[in-house]
Design a protein around this nucleic acid. Structure first.
Lengths: 188, 188
DNA sequence: AGCGTCGATGACAGTCACTGACATCGACAG
DNA sequence: CTGTCGATGTCAGTGACTGTCATCGACGCT
């Protein structure tokens, strides 16, 4: 057994989400988070770059999953359909995590600075998707626009998923959102 | 004549943009900005909520212009065409401001925290556009998706405008980007 | 002219996010 | 038994941001 309790990083993330929910993000100090996790403030900053990042631990894994699914889609598929394949893959990882997703989402929407961080994560995702599409041979600006559209569908699909009482899967809702986007941009 | 030099707010914005460009955003302290503007740090925070906001003074006016153009578009127009009318109106205000836009954009893209602020301004714009579309009778999620698409077109059109050497207007570039988006989302 | 109010600013102390430097100490290899 | 390593603790420091009170010219009223 080590000198310290294991899973310091996870303990910090859990403590932070709890405290942000209980007292609010601004009313919570990093020292309090560290104390609840049985650590010190300095150690918090060794695990997370800042007070917001602690809520975004899974972001890079999600991005990787999305990008890989797009890259691995059949070559013959159109850009928007490769994105659709990525949306399917990403939707799958949310199965069974609706409670956690709701709790986390409630904290984020309540604080502008957390929304900012979420938005830049989505922008990073969009850039990575555009890159994956370019590697599939899609030219600009089509690659960036398709990526932006995909992220918009993901965002709105997710919001509908956490916001609805019905028991519909995130995959269903993203499929519907994509169909809707195609409808509103049709014609002209 | 007043007790102080006029246009304190504008002086602060000018000093901040200069210093962010000269030394970088992080290497600039608010006290330095205030000093260059002939004021104190405390006065800076009376004009701007934080160190980033000083670069986003025109954001609310731009949003208002965009939203009004969408609201005032002929009733018969489809949602995406109302958005297109808004894009035309917004593009017009950038005429003659390419140098300033480039300088400001260079500062923003060099700093993640400034990009975050820019992204939340765009998110606010998207929400306001969705609201305007809803008031035109557009249901959800079509309103939000069309708004997101419009913001994506604006963003990419703007980036192409500041990034290209050719003398093309922002209106031309946003028109092209919108056409491209329609093309990539077509079919399926 | 005298006077009271108001608004923009200055002065100052305080909190907290975040960083750099150094110390601690169990695990582990040799 | 000893030296290295890695995760943590300790502590001092910077800078963003806030609350509070003081200042003082402009302006309207009498």
């Amino acid at each position: 057994m080590g000198r310290w309790e294991p899973n310091a990083r996870e303990r910090l993330a859990k403590a932070a989400l709890e405290l942000y929910g209980e007292r609010g993000y601004e009313q919570t100090t990093v020292a309090e988070i560290a104390k609840r996790a049985g650590l010190t403030e300095r150690t918090f900053f060794r695990h997370y770059a800042d007070k917001r990042e602690v809520l975004f631990d899974g972001a890079s894994a999600l991005q990787e999953l999305f990008v890989n699914a797009v890259a691995d889609a059949p070559e013959a598929k159109a850009p928007i359909d490769a994105i659709a394949a990525g949306l399917e893959a990403v939707s799958a990882v949310f199965v069974g995590r609706r409670g956690y997703s709701r709790q986390r989402h409630a904290v984020v929407v309540a604080n502008a600075v957390l929304q900012e961080r979420e938005l830049i994560k989505l922008a990073s995702l969009s850039a990575a998707l555009a890159d994956a599409l370019r590697r599939r041979g899609v030219p600009e600006p089509a690659a960036s626009l398709t990526a932006e559209a995909g992220v918009a569908v993901f965002k709105i699909g997710f919001e509908r998923w956490v916001g609805t009482a019905e028991e519909r899967t995130m995959a269903q809702l993203t499929r519907e959102s994509l169909a809707e986007l195609k409808a509103v941009t049709a014609g002209g």
